[in-house]
């Protein structure tokens, strides 16, 4: 019964975007998955939401500049459990072309656990959607864990 609940619940992943100092390229590609009929992320039950408190899947783009670091961590902590993170683009993993820049500190995975990584500069919309689907798999496992622990 609970397994079924988790299976059904995992078909409604709501997505929240965090821009951690990205150049906006990845953000444009993310918007593409939602706005362009050809990709239509909503057919997977996804919905881009404006509030971190509504989110299940977090898409992070950008190299985590020093300036936004604390704000990103604060927003990340406001997302209710269970949640998964997807790093979009190479910046969150390695800093990309901003690596060793004066405003870029350590990589994001020193602060936030990254579950799925979608490399690319920027990645194609298909790749982002595949990343979301993989993240949903991880999320489902976490849902089952949390629901079974509560009961």
């Amino acid at each position: 019964m609970l397994q079924l609940l988790c299976k059904l619940a995992s078909r409604s992943p709501w997505i929240y975007r965090i821009n951690a100092g990205s150049c906006n390229g990845c953000d444009v590609e993310m918007a593409t998955t939602a706005l362009i009929p050809r990709y239509d992320v909503e057919r997977l039950g996804c919905k881009y939401c404006g509030s971190p408190r509504h989110a299940d899947v977090v898409l992070i783009s950008g190299p985590l500049t020093l300036r936004v670091r604390d704000k990103v961590l604060r927003v990340y902590n406001e997302i209710p459990h269970p949640k998964v993170t997807v790093a979009v683009g190479v910046c969150p993993v390695s800093g990309g072309c901003f690596r060793d820049g004066y405003s870029v500190g350590a990589d994001i995975d020193h602060y936030i656990p990254l579950d799925v990584i979608v490399p690319g500069c920027p990645p194609r919309p298909q790749a982002i959607m595949e990343g979301i689907l993989k993240a949903v798999e991880v999320w489902r496992a976490r849902l089952e864990e949390s629901v079974c622990c509560h009961s």
Binding site: L8, A9, S12, W14, P80, P82, S146, V147
Partner: peptide, 9 residues
């Protein structure tokens, strides 16, 4: 599905 999901959060 959305309602079920929100109930587990």
């Amino acid at each position: 599905l959305d309602i079920l999901k929100l109930a587990t959060k």
